[in-house]
Amino acid sequence: MAEVDEANKPLFAGLSDVSISADIPVEGEITVPVSSPSQDDEYSTLDEPVKDTILRDLKAVGKKFVHVMYPKKSSALLRDWDLWGPLLLCVTLALLLQGGSADSKDDGGPQFAEVFVIIWFGSVVITLNSKLLGGTISFFQSLCVLGYCILPLTVAMIVCRLVLLGGTGPASFAIRLILVIASFGWSTFASTAFLADSQPPSRKALVVYPIFLFYFVIGWMILTFAPSHGAGP
């Protein structure tokens, strides 16, 4: 014990010397460098106007819409996914599929919630299916692609409603049939162009079939949409 005390003495002595004998005023830069050059302001999204943020996101969504309309196996749709576009398309479609008047509850068409559930549940099931079959694509990328590829069908729905304003004869039905078939083919083609490469070739058909069924059902809902009775004469 004595040895330890002796060994410690000079240490404590030194420490006390330092702390006591420091009568020099403390000097130096103690400010955090906050005021950096103005270059950083351009890259920070914290203090940019809300308008810019929304516009940038909308631009990203719009870019993906263009990709869906011209499917050329680009991976831009896969690299940075977002679910804003699918949500927008899904809500638009579900709203357009509603009958015009609120009191026609028995028009037999799909309700808002049914359309919503079919689109989201359907794309989740298709994604799980492709993952279970051994796909290499991530879950949300697949959801994003499937959601964005509803775009042709939503466009067809908008045109169908315009056609239905003109009348509900056989001619209007023929126009709607052609529209829906074309947009259904477009949707299926676009989504398989993005998704089929993530699968081993012997299982491609197994992955494409559910996608085909999914868009077929959505196409059917659009084709059979009948305007509410209030719109009649």
Binding site: D107, G108, G109, P110, Q111, E114, M221, T224, F225, A226, H229
Partner: peptide, 8 residues
């Protein structure tokens, strides 16, 4: 007769 999709 009015056509209905009969989604039910």
């Amino acid at each position: 007769y009015h056509y209905v999709p009969e989604f039910r």
